[in-house]
C-alpha cells in the first residue's frame, strides 16, 4: 500500500507544516473508516443476519437460524400490508403537497421583491426545528378545544387527530408544513438556473404564461425537482417522530411506527430486522425509478 502513496512535494505548505500523506491517512481517513465500519457497516450486516433468525434482544436465549421464515410471515401478514398502504398514502399526500407548496413558494420568490433574503430565511425556519418539537406543538395547534387552527378556521371542535379518517391527513399537513421549504429551496435553485433569455424568446414566440410554464419552466426545473422528490420520498417513508407524537390511531400507523413497536415494544428483533430490510428494498426500488427518470431528464 505504502508504495502507491504519493509523497508531497517537499516545498508545499502542507509538507512545511509536517503533514505527509501518510499522516493524513492515519489521522483522518483511518478513524473515519473505522467509525463507518463500527457504526454503519457492522450493524447493517448484523441486522441482515438477525433477520434470518428468531433473535429477541430482550432475552438471553440464543438466536436460531430460521431462514426466510420472518420474511414469509411478514409478507403474508395482512396488518403489515395495511401499514404499507397507509405509508404509501401518506408518502403520496405528503410529497405531492410539499412539491406543490414548495414549488409554488419558489415561483413567488423567483423575482425581484424587497427583503427577499429575509423572507427566504423565515420560510426555511420549519425545516430547522426538531421533528419531535414540531410534533408536540402541532398537537397543541390541532387541539379540538383550545387549538388555534380550529379557532382560525372556525371549525368548532373538529377532531383532527382523534378522527381516524382525518388523522393521517393531519400528520401529512405537518410534514408538508415542515418540509415544503426544502422543496422550495431546491426549486428556487432550479428556477434561477433557467436562463432569462429563454423566457424572452418564449415571449417573442407569443407563448402564454401557462404555456411557458408547462413547456419551458417545468421541463427545465424537472431534474432538480426530481432530486427534491427523491429526498422527500425517502424521508417520508421513514417518518416516525411527529407521526408517533401526534397520533396513535391505527390509521396513522406508518411502517416506521410499526417497526418501532415490533422491535422495541414486542422485542421481535429478528422479525423487525427482516421488516427493516423489506422497507429498505422498497425505498431503493422506488428511488431507482426516480433516478432513471432523472437521468433521462438530464440527458436532454
Amino acid at each position: 500500500m505504502a508504495n502507491v502513496m504519493t509523497r508531497l512535494e517537499p516545498d508545499t505548505r502542507a509538507a512545511a507544516r509536517g503533514l505527509s500523506d501518510l499522516t493524513i491517512r492515519n489521522l483522518f481517513i483511518i478513524p473515519t473508516i473505522a467509525f463507518l465500519i463500527i457504526f454503519n457497516v457492522f450493524p447493517l450486516l448484523y441486522s441482515l443476519w438477525t433477520s434470518f433468525t428468531d433473535f429477541r434482544a430482550s432475552t438471553t436465549a440464543p438466536a436460531n437460524w430460521i431462514g426466510l421464515e420472518n420474511y414469509r410471515e411478514l409478507l403474508s401478514d395482512e396488518f403489515i400490508w395495511r401499514n404499507f398502504t397507509i405509508t404509501a398514502k401518506y408518502v403520496l399526500i405528503s410529497v405531492s403537497g410539499q412539491v406543490v407548496v414548495g414549488f409554488g413558494l419558489a415561483m413567488l420568490l423567483n423575482r425581484q421583491i424587497p427583503m427577499k433574503g429575509l423572507i427566504t430565511t423565515l420560510l426555511l425556519l420549519p425545516m430547522m426545528l426538531s421533528m419531535a418539537v414540531v410534533g408536540l406543538f402541532w398537537k397543541l395547534l390541532y387541539d379540538p378545544s383550545f387549538g388555534i387552527i380550529n379557532y382560525f378556521l372556525g371549525l368548532g371542535k373538529f377532531e383532527w387527530l382523534a378522527d381516524p379518517q382525518v388523522a393521517l391527513y393531519a400528520v401529512a399537513i405537518v410534514d408538508i408544513w415542515m418540509w415544503s421549504p426544502f422543496v422550495m429551496l431546491l426549486s428556487l435553485a432550479g428556477l434561477s438556473a433557467v436562463p432569462k433569455h429563454l423566457y424572452e424568446a418564449a415571449e417573442i414566440d407569443r407563448a402564454s404564461s401557462l404555456y411557458t410554464f408547462f413547456r419551458i419552466t417545468l421541463p427545465l426545473v424537472a431534474p432538480i425537482l426530481m432530486i427534491a422528490i427523491i429526498f422527500r420520498t425517502m424521508e417520508a417513508f421513514k417518518t416516525f417522530d411527529h407521526a408517533y407524537i401526534l397520533s396513535s390511531q391505527p390509521t396513522t400507523e406508518l411502517i416506521a411506527i410499526r417497526l418501532y413497536k415490533m422491535a422495541f415494544l414486542e422485542w421481535q428483533t429478528g422479525m423487525s430486522s427482516a421488516f427493516a430490510y423489506i422497507v429498505l428494498i422498497m425505498v431503493v426500488a422506488i428511488t431507482n425509478i426516480y433516478v432513471k427518470y432523472l437521468n433521462r431528464a438530464k440527458a436532454r
Binding site: P195, H197, L198, E200, A201, A202, R300
Partner: peptide, 10 residues
C-alpha cells in the same frame, strides 16, 4: 427576434 445566445430551448 434572434438572440446572440441563440436562446434555443435546450
Amino acid at each position: 427576434f434572434v438572440f446572440q445566445s441563440f436562446s434555443l430551448y435546450p
